[in-house]
Design a protein around this nucleic acid. Structure first.
Length: 429
RNA sequence: CGGGCUGUAGUAUACCGGUAGUACACGUGUUUUGGGAACACGUAGACUGGGUUCAAUUCCCAGCAGCCCGACCA
């Protein structure tokens, strides 16, 4: 089932009309593979260190990631909301984080009023709920949003992996008992695993034990193997779990039942995390409920984050080859890249026919209808952009009575009919 | 935030104390068309401020910005 990203006829796009262009030269102010490919392919544009605009391709990928996450959050019982980036200083003073959080962006206007640019939203979501939650009957509850976050990283780096403004899904859950919380927390582990599988990096992503947890001594991270990663983790393939270097010691391994000699060291990037917040944020705002007996209790909380922009960069890092990006079908900007080769009128007419046919069948297609370009240039662009399937129409393919179809990961393609192509693409998602 | 390096066209680069050159991209035209075509013509550039100098894009200083290493990263 294909989810429509946009209304109207935006399922397809003609490259001759697209305002972005691919770049042959790599920019010198980026080093990381994800930023280099995403910028060269026209997915993103760098505004300043750690801050990027999303261009049409990049936005499409982002929307697809967003849809996967939204579906899974909704399935897990989450209710979607959208909270502001500008946040009152008083809320942050109440939790002590106006002073303690060193990477908090504080901005002031000409009247001298100071506000925070949200790096996370406990300070907002908790006061909201004070207006609505007062009984045990209102709980449990889980709210989430997909929204821009701000963090004053002293050193933004690695392209989309560590930005100052980035896009994150943050969910907050609210519970009456520790048991209820733990059930939900454990459910979220499975939900997260599903999300990373659907995003195409499930095979590289591990539930990782890290420092910072409260109820179980650990916090849980989801780490994806990539050499561009900032963390070092030790993976036990058999149980499919990992231990972050920060808590890697004999005592921890023993408590997790892991054998040191079976663990393999990898560089990895944290694509998601889940936290037990206990009453850390409900307490300062006195977010509480009354139970069946009329007794008042402070609400227990958990929080669950996934960096969407980081996930996008991670997929590029983890799956690209030396020619460019290799998108998983689930989050590729388009399902198929249709290339029209040569300037023959018959080829152009046939390409247009096929393009229209694909659109009518609800297939998302990027159509390289540009004239005057060499075949090599179109192939190189196609490899860089990384759409899973490439369909070529040329004098040669017409002579062979079909379309040359090749996966991005394959060396050689095969000739198929339009109907076979449609059938394949309809079933692939 | 400490240390280092770097700022020349949309991008990537060259040379230079005295008129800034090239490639990609872009525009016009002709040829070409299965792995980043060719030619011709054209558009477009020295981060900001101060100093030295007859003269600064070039040398010096400061600021700003970018990158790298480190620290930091609920």
């Amino acid at each position: 089932m294909t989810k429509r990203l946009f209304s109207g006829n935006m399922e397809g796009m003609k490259q001759s009309k697209l305002f972005t262009k691919t770049k042959k030269e790599a920019p010198t102010d980026e080093v990381s593979n994800n930023a280099l490919f995403l910028i060269r392919g026209g997915f993103i544009h760098k505004e300043m260190a750690g801050v990027y605009s999303y261009l049409p391709f990049g936005l499409r990928v982002l929307k697809k990631i967003e849809n996967i996450i939204r579906e899974e959050m909704d399935k897990a019982g989450g209710q979607e909301i959208l909270m502001p980036s500008m946040q009152p200083k008083e809320n942050w003073e109440k939790t002590g984080r106006w002073e303690s959080m060193t990477d908090l962006y504080k901005v002031s206007d000409s009247s001298g009023r100071e506000v925070a640019l949200g790096p996370t939203h406990e300070e907002i979501v908790v006061p909201i709920l004070k207006n609505y939650i007062s009984s045990y009957k209102d709980l449990p509850l889980a709210l989430y949003q997909i929204q821009n976050k701000f963090r004053m990283e002293l050193r933004a780096k690695s392209g989309m992996l560590r930005g100052r403004e980035f896009i994150m899904k943050d969910m907050y859950s609210f519970h009456t008992t520790q048991e209820d919380f733990e059930n939900f927390y454990n459910k979220m582990k499975i939900v997260y695993k599903t999300i990373f599988e659907r995003a195409g990096i499930g095979h590289l992503t591990y539930l990782t034990f890290a420092s910072g947890g409260t109820f179980s001594k650990y916090s849980h991270e989801f780490q994806t193997i990539t050499s561009a990663g900032e963390d070092t983790i030790y993976i036990d393939e058999e149980s499919s779990i990992a231990v972050n270097k920060e808590v890697f010691n004999e005592e921890v391994l023993q408590s997790l039942g892991l054998k040191k000699e079976k663990l393999v060291e990898h560089k990895a990037i944290e694509v998601g995390n889940i936290f037990d917040l206990k009453t850390k944020y409900s307490e300062p705002f006195d977010l509480s409920y009354v139970d069946e007996k009329g007794e008042k209790h402070t609400i227990l909380m958990g929080c669950y984050g996934i960096g969407l922009s980081r996930l996008m960069g991670t997929v590029v890092e983890a799956l690209a080859d030396d020619k460019g990006i290799i998108w998983p079908e689930s989050i590729a900007p388009f399902q198929v890249h249709l290339l029209s080769l040569g300037n023959d009128d018959g080829v152009l007419a046939e390409s247009n026919n096929v393009y229209e046919k694909l659109l009518k069948n609800g297939i998302e297609v990027l159509f390289d209808d540009r004239v005057g370009l060499s075949a090599g240039e179109k192939f190189a662009d196609s490899d860089l952009i990384g759409i899973p399937y490439r369909a070529v129409i040329s004098l040669r393919s017409i002579k062979e009575n079909g379309i040359e179809l090749k996966k991005r990961t394959e060396e050689k393609g095969k000739v198929v009919s339009v109907d076979e192509l449609i059938k394949l693409l309809k079933s692939s998602i």
